[in-house]
């Protein structure tokens, strides 16, 4: 009983349990599920972690905020990386600033629509996503590059003492995110805005700036992730960001961040990302059809939300 209460106070612990359980299941199911395949899971999870951090900031900002433009940002950034770098390392000098610019402009556009025009984030980000998708369709016409910059490939596939570099990168980002949430004024303000934006404004918080930073972070991380994914996947293709729509929200929610905003946990998002990737891996290992994999992913997220509730009940007190 007390263990359960304590776990409720540390909502991330549920995702850790889930990871351990699935890991055990996978080890029993397949004899050749070893450290090597584990590092495959880890690097897949890393790409998810990077975007999930951004999604976590946006969700924590409350008011039903959510970033649905992430998949489109990923895809368009991957295309831009391929086209501008032409698969060379020197080309990255051009490609990376462009990718960062895509992230910043998208984030700023989302924030502008949400804050200045008062469009609900779900609609604003979805609409911006469609605009980006059109850009991707046009970029797709001029995509004739099929090699990847060796530098970028290095980042996504190299290992340091057996640990994928990308995992180290994602973990470092996660630690920074955790530090910001727990220990800085920005994190404190973000959680205040997420709980009650009016109260935060009246308490002296700059709510607009706070929410803008969350959207900027989300789009920027999505753009960088897109560049990295183009190297990981060996190129850019239409809809390559698609899985990250549900998964980024899923990793955040599964990790124990409150979907209603105002409370976030980086540690939870870390394990939530691993958990979701493990779920997919388990289904692939078991030979499930792609259709059933989608059904299960959707169902898991609904089930976890239903089990956790929204955290709203405490607010009505």
């Amino acid at each position: 009983m007390t263990v359960l209460t304590r776990m409720r106070d540390h909502r991330w612990s549920f995702s850790v349990l889930g990871v351990l359980a699935l890991w055990g299941l996978l080890s029993v199911m397949t004899s050749h599920f070893n450290l090597n395949s584990l590092s495959g899971v880890a690097s897949s999870a890393s790409f998810l972690m990077i975007v999930a951090i951004g999604q976590m900031f946006v969700i924590a900002s409350g008011s039903g905020n959510i970033d649905l433009s992430i998949p489109s940002v990923i895809t368009v950034s991957a295309f831009v990386t391929m086209i501008l770098s032409q698969g060379t390392n020197s080309g990255l000098l051009l490609a990376l600033p462009a990718v960062i610019a895509i992230g910043l402009v998208t984030g700023a556009a989302n924030a502008f629509l949400v804050l200045k025009l008062r469009i609900p984030a779900i609609i604003a980000t979805l609409a911006i996503g469609y605009v980006l998708d059109s850009a991707t369709l046009i970029a797709n016409r001029s995509l004739d590059v099929f090699t990847v910059s060796t530098l970028l490939r290095g980042v996504t596939s190299a290992k340091l003492a057996g640990v994928p570099v990308i995992l180290i990168l994602a973990s470092a980002l996660m630690m920074v995110a955790g530090g910001i949430i727990k220990g800085t004024t920005y994190g404190r303000t973000l959680m205040a805005v997420g709980q009650n934006a009016t109260a935060a404004h009246l308490a002296g918080a700059r709510t607009g700036r706070t929410i803008t930073i969350a959207f900027l972070a989300s789009s920027l991380l999505g753009a960088v992730d897109g560049a990295l994914l183009s190297a990981h996947a060996g190129g850019a293709f239409l809809q390559m960001g698609e899985p990250y729509l549900l998964q980024s929200v899923g990793a955040v929610v599964v990790g124990g961040t409150l979907i209603a905003g105002g409370s976030a946990t980086a540690l939870g998002t870390f394990f939530g990302s691993i958990l979701l990737v493990l779920v997919v891996t388990t289904m692939q290992v078991s030979g499930w059809s792609p259709g059933m994999q989608e059904v299960v992913q959707g169902a898991i997220i609904i089930a976890i939300l239903a089990a956790a509730g929204s955290g709203l009940s405490r607010r009505s007190a």
Partner: peptide, 10 residues
């Protein structure tokens, strides 16, 4: 009492 957005996305 969970947000429709995420449930319907799922």
């Amino acid at each position: 009492e969970i947000p429709a957005i995420v449930v319907t996305l799922g």
